[in-house]
Measured scan of single mutants.
Amino acid sequence: HNGKLCKLKGIAPLQLGKCNITGWLLGNPECDSLLPARSWSYIVETPNSENGACYPGDLIDYEELREQLSSVSSLERFEIFPKESSWPNHTFNGVTVSCSHRGKSSFYRNLLWLTKKGDSYPKLTNSYVNNKGKEVLVLWGVHHPSSSDEQQSLYSNGNAYVSVASSNYNRRFTPEIAARPKVRDQHGRMNYYWTLLEPGDTIIFEATGNLIAPWYAFALSRGFESGIITSNASMHECNTKCQTPQGAINSNLPFQNIHPVTIGECPKYVRSTKLRMVTGLRNIPSIQYRGLFGAIAGFIEGGWTGMIDGWYGYHHQNEQGSGYAADQKSTQNAINGITNKVNSVIEKMNTQFTAVGKEFNNLEKRMENLNKKVDDGFLDIWTYNAELLVLLENERTLDFHDLNVKNLYEKVKSQLKNNAKEIGNGCFEFYHKCDNECMESVRNGTYDYPKYSEESKLNREKIDGVKLESMGVYQILAIYSTVASSLVLLVSLGAISFWMCSNGSLQCRICI
Rank of each mutant, 00 (worst) to 15 (best):
I463M: 11
N394Q: 11
G247T: 07
M277N: 08
G357P: 11
T482Y: 00
M367F: 14
Y409K: 10
N239H: 13
P285M: 01
V473R: 09
I338R: 02
K406R: 15
Y409I: 14
A420G: 12
G303C: 04
G424R: 09
I308Q: 09
E454Y: 03
N407H: 11
Q246L: 12
V491W: 14
E469N: 13
L403S: 06
Y409V: 06
F378D: 07
L363I: 12
E359C: 09
V270K: 01
R271I: 01
Q475I: 03
T305E: 05
N250A: 15
T244W: 04
P245K: 06
T339W: 01
Q328K: 12
K413N: 13
I423E: 02
A355N: 01
L403Y: 07
E347S: 14
K417G: 14
F255Q: 07
S502Q: 15
R282M: 06
N404M: 14
P254W: 06
D435W: 06
E237G: 13
V390W: 05
L281D: 06
N333K: 13
Y452L: 01
Q328T: 02
V261L: 09
S234R: 12
I512K: 00
K417C: 04
P267G: 13
G306T: 07
C242N: 09
F428C: 06
N343L: 10
K413F: 10
C511Q: 05
W499M: 14
C508E: 04
T262S: 11
E461Y: 03
L292V: 15
F360V: 03
D435T: 10
M367T: 09
G313C: 04
N425S: 08
N318W: 05
S456W: 01
C511T: 03
G472Q: 07
G472I: 08
Q352C: 09
S492A: 14
E454G: 13
N444R: 09
D376S: 10
Q288F: 07
L477H: 07
G247A: 05
M471F: 07
V491L: 01
I338W: 04
C242Y: 11
H236I: 06
L292A: 07
G426Y: 14
D376R: 06
M500F: 00
V356S: 10
N385S: 07
C434T: 14
R460N: 05
D327G: 06
C238T: 05
E437T: 13
D376A: 10
M235H: 12
T262Y: 15
N336W: 11
A334G: 01
K462D: 11
Y269W: 01
H401E: 08
N444D: 06
C242M: 04
N333C: 08
C438Q: 07
S505E: 13
Q352E: 03
L388M: 15
H315M: 14
Y312M: 10
S505M: 08
K373V: 08
C242E: 03
L391R: 04
R509V: 09
L379K: 10
K348G: 03
R271Q: 09
Q288C: 02
V473E: 10
T446L: 14
S344Y: 01
G445L: 10
T262F: 11
D380V: 07
I510L: 14
A355R: 07
I287D: 00
Y480I: 04
S322F: 10
L487I: 15
E455Y: 07
E395P: 06
C266M: 09
Y480H: 14
N419C: 15
Y324I: 06
D435R: 15
R276I: 03
C501P: 01
S497G: 15
G280F: 04
N340M: 14
H259A: 15
R276T: 08
I284P: 00
N407P: 01
E440P: 02
Y447E: 05
R396K: 11
T482S: 13
N459R: 14
R366V: 05
S485R: 04
A248E: 11
Y474R: 11
Y384D: 09
N419M: 10
E429K: 11
N340C: 08
F400G: 14
T279G: 01
G504Q: 15
N425F: 05
P285A: 12
S322G: 07
T279Q: 12
N371K: 10
I287Q: 14
V342T: 01
I496A: 13
I308T: 12
K373Q: 10
Q332E: 14
G424S: 09
C266D: 10
L391C: 06
L408Y: 05
P267C: 08
P267E: 02
I263M: 11
N407V: 07
Y269F: 15
V491I: 05
L253N: 02
R443E: 15
N394W: 07
H316N: 00
V488M: 10
Q415V: 05
V390L: 12
A386M: 06
L292I: 15
S286Q: 15
I308K: 15
L370A: 08
F353N: 14
C511V: 07
C242K: 02
E347P: 01
K358S: 14
F498P: 03
R396V: 01
N252A: 14
T279K: 07
G302L: 01
I335F: 13
R276W: 11
N503Q: 07
S485G: 12
Q317T: 13
I381Q: 07
I381A: 05
S234H: 04
A325P: 04
Q352T: 06
G294M: 10
T354F: 09
V345Y: 15
G323P: 03
N336C: 05
S414R: 14
F255G: 06
Q328Y: 12
V278Y: 03
F299D: 04
A326M: 06
P285L: 05
S492P: 05
Q246N: 08
Q352R: 15
L493D: 00
Y269S: 03
A420Q: 01
T279P: 03
L389I: 13
N444W: 02
G472C: 11
W311T: 07
E461G: 12
K268D: 04
E237K: 00
L408G: 03
T262M: 02
N252P: 02
M349P: 01
G465R: 12
T331A: 04
E359P: 00
Q320W: 07
D327C: 06
G494F: 01
M307E: 01
L403E: 08
V466W: 05
R276Q: 01
